[in-house]
Design a protein around this nucleic acid. Structure first.
Lengths: 318, 318
DNA sequence: CACCGTTACGGTATCCGTAAGGATT
DNA sequence: AATCCTTACGGATACCGTAACGGTG
């Protein structure tokens, strides 16, 4: 058995069971990939993939077990590399963060500016995705960490460290009738067409639940991943938007008005997501510290080791 | 980086930082081992071992980190192999159990006889050690499982699954005055020279504590790993023995008498010890089931995944 | 025909073992 | 002297990439 075989296996699965796609991302020829998998199957004496006429359909149950172990091995490999690079004080390196649009656009710019100043030689890339996708990316090691709202059905390969509470606001055009409704109620909102987050975002889930509890259903005329798109449509008079409060910028959004709706919708939890047992390089820990100052290196280390950070104290609002 | 390098690293450490010893157990030449380590250090750009003039002294802090990851990788490797062998229904295989003398001699023979009957082609080996050593052997993967009394300071690489309560008895020659002391007390025992387990065994620890709580100290004239040795010395009139109740066999030990001391000494817990996240082959699970029938495959799987088996019910007495 | 995976073949690179060297106890 | 690690060198093995082949939609 061979490390390359295991890495190959992981990549093939990540590429949707496509040998040719894996060959590209691994910078290897296709036949090489075929062989790696074949030799692995031969050595283990069992098929990993279900094939039909030279076409790979899915993993066998046994293949899934092997994959799980292979992923853990690949993670540990990265850990060894990261730890060594850290020790050598390699100032350069890569750092990939998965996050949702709202965080990328409104929360992270400050953090990223600071990070770029302190670590100019680290290549930072952002990858935009839904919270569920974020967790998957972390789980397979495609990104180093994710910053997103917590998902209910978390994979147990990842650890979510809660950082902030996230409240909602209603964004409306100036002089909208809702601005005079005090206090704001779900029933009042239900009278207007709504623009909000897409399925799969916790924002949407929280909204649907708050309406359902009143026996109502929101009249969602448009769902967007992107808070900016939502706001643009509010300006056009298509409807009102229910967004994270952070997604409203008083100066930039001077053409809009906002109404706090923290009392109507359950707050979401904004977390840092990392793979369990992963070694985070010093600059990654530093990044997390810039994002959430209470997450010191020690606190993150403890959380990664598996234990939740003691008493779940009240989180600060973002 | 290479699997062989990581396996080599683990073995070198297990052999007490001796390259030559590792070469023997890995069936490789010494220069090969040297190169593996050198190449690993070179690739990572950091020393793993602290050397002094061609002599390896210890691991560097960084080396310890790498070792920890390497061990996890080697474990997962074994998991992959075991799972594959299981699937192929390979009836043969190896199985190494670490245990203490008392269990090897009095508890396990029944289990082993049954196991040998059902799996004649599995090569089973027992390895005798103290409970602490047992856990270490499991932790570094030198044995598949251990069966021993629980140790207080358990390594977090291993999981201990409690199975039985273990009580003590006092073993005396026939017509010994203690036979007439009813109920038996610590104070009464303290009047006689005692033979019992060596340091490092939970039996010894429990005994010392029971005496200390009364402000007494046992007059230990001989400490042995081996209950049979202890009993032999009792027969010779050297002293009385305080042993696990299971270590007394009424027929074989007809020349001795036993007094239950369950009310004087805290019971120990006899557990199965396995490495966390390890894949145990079907026949190993079967063995554990023969030893402790309540440990079904599902129960063991749950315990290995990391969670203790719910409410710690009262354990059966052995 | 385009796409995907498998098989065949030649060249390079890796890695092993033997042999020899330097250092320590 | 014995033990231990390192360096040097020749040979076998493994692995990669190019090229050609067989199925599939």
């Amino acid at each position: 058995m061979n490390l390359r075989q295991l890495i190959t296996l992981c990549e093939v699965v990540d590429q949707g069971l496509k040998l040719s796609a894996a060959a590209l991302t691994l910078h290897r020829s296709q036949p090489s990939i075929t062989r790696q998998i074949q030799e692995l199957e031969e050595e283990l004496g069992a098929k990993i993939f279900l094939r039909k006429r030279n076409r790979i359909l899915e993993l066998t149950p046994h293949g899934r077990e092997i994959l799980a172990s292979a992923r853990r091995i690949v993670t540990e490999l990265r850990n060894i590399r990261s730890a060594s690079d850290d020790l050598a004080e390699t100032a350069h390196g890569n750092f990939t963060v998965a996050t949702t649009h709202t965080q990328a656009r409104y929360t992270l710019p400050r953090v990223i500016r600071q990070f770029k100043g302190e670590y100019p030689n680290v290549h930072l890339s952002l990858r935009q995705a839904t919270p569920v996708q974020c967790c998957e990316l972390v789980a397979r090691g495609a990104v180093d960490i994710a910053i997103c709202t917590e998902t209910r059905d978390a994979l147990d390969e990842v650890i979510q460290i809660p950082c902030y509470r996230l409240n909602r606001s209603v964004v409306v055009p100036p002089a909208h009738p809702l601005l005079k409704v005090k206090p704001l109620t779900i029933e009042a909102i239900a009278r207007y067409p709504v623009i909000t987050y897409d399925e799969g975002f916790s924002g949407r889930w929280v909204l649907d639940r708050a309406f359902a509890r009143r026996g109502l259903e929101p009249n969602v005329v448009l769902s967007a991943i992107d808070a900016d798109v939502s706001k643009a449509y509010v300006e056009m008079g298509i409807g009102i938007a229910i967004l994270a409060t952070v997604a409203f910028d008083a100066t930039r959004d001077a053409g809009l008005r906002t109404i706090d709706a923290g009392h109507l919708f359950a707050p979401s939890t904004l977390s840092v997501v990392a793979r369990r047992n992963s070694y985070l390089r010093a600059y990654m820990l530093s990044f997390i510290g810039m994002f959430a100052p209470k997450l010191t290196r020690a606190a993150i280390g403890k959380a990664l080791a598996g234990q939740p950070p003691g008493a779940p104290r009240k989180l600060p609002e973002l």
